[in-house]
């Protein structure tokens, strides 16, 4: 399980968990569940296009996820934002299907991108994973107070010189690159659970902000490590273990809170 060829997978998975657990705390705090669901889907055609062009997957993913941020920000002003956003997302998924079909190897690639395939990680994935896995939590921590303030009391925060729209774009940008790096592990359909599950569980367990953030990151690490180990042991897809693990952790936290008080 810890063979040299798997070393990169362990490192990348750990970094993904740090970024996703940290971003997830703010997803739940700021009520950005839809964005966390949408950005990985928007990133999906990026991976397919990268395969078609022969560049590293993560750059295609990040480019499309960041374009997704621009799209979400723009669509917020539309008349029926939910219907419009859902349609654009679905069209992007369709575009991804086209790119995959053009690049050949359709079936396997579809499966890996939608549901995750961490064991395919190689040394080339390390630099972007390091940058995002350490950079995203550092930046989010540096913006901890303004991000919290504008989520709790947007009016007051605005009066104190914090631009709600600016913070939103900054946060969604960090969420997008996190989604891009996490997508190969959990898949476009399951990155959402890795962000939301640990954070939603953490806030059941503690009412304090910083401990909740730390707990969210720790639970994300637990889920990712367990998923990687179980995927290797059983040779079942890692996405299955990520989805099931997130749901289990959340259910356990709900149960613990109910039993305790």
């Amino acid at each position: 399980m810890f063979a040299p060829y798997l070393r990169d997978a362990w490192i990348v998975a750990t970094l993904i968990a740090l970024a996703a657990g940290c971003a997830g705390y703010f997803v739940v705090l700021r009520g950005a569940g839809f964005a966390a669901h949408a950005l990985p889907m928007a990133a999906f055609p990026g991976a397919a296009l990268a395969g078609l062009l022969g560049i590293a997957q993560v750059y295609g993913l990040a480019a499309f996820a960041l374009a997704g941020v621009a799209g979400l920000t723009w669509l917020k002003r539309a008349q029926r934002p939910d219907a419009a956003a859902a349609l654009v997302l679905v069209a992007l998924l369709g575009l991804g299907a086209l790119f995959l079909s053009l690049s050949g190897g359709y079936a396997n690639a579809v499966y890996a991108l939608l549901f995750g395939q961490i064991l395919g990680v190689g040394p080339a994935d390390l630099p972007p994973a390091l940058a995002i896995g350490l950079g995203v939590p550092a930046l989010l921590l540096a913006c901890f107070r303004p991000l919290s303030y504008s989520a709790i009391a947007p009016d007051i925060a605005a009066a104190r010189g914090l631009s709600g729209a600016g913070l939103d774009v900054l946060f969604l940008g960090l969420l997008a690159v996190t989604a891009a790096i996490a997508l190969p592990l959990a898949g476009a359909l399951l990155v959402f659970t890795l962000m939301v599950g640990p954070a939603a569980a953490a806030r059941q367990l503690t009412p304090a902000p910083l401990p909740a953030l730390g707990l969210s990151m720790a639970l994300a690490l637990l889920i990712v490590w367990a998923a990687l180990a179980l995927a290797w042991l059983t040779s079942l897809p890692s996405g299955f273990f990520v989805g099931a693990g997130s749901a289990l952790v959340y259910a356990a936290a709900r149960l613990w809170r109910r039993v305790k008080g």
Partner: peptide, 18 residues
């Protein structure tokens, strides 16, 4: 909660497709 249950469902889809 709905999102997390949906996520678990997608995990099961992943397993079944595999």
């Amino acid at each position: 909660a709905a999102g997390i249950v949906l996520g678990a469902g997608m995990g099961i889809t992943a397993l079944l497709l595999y």
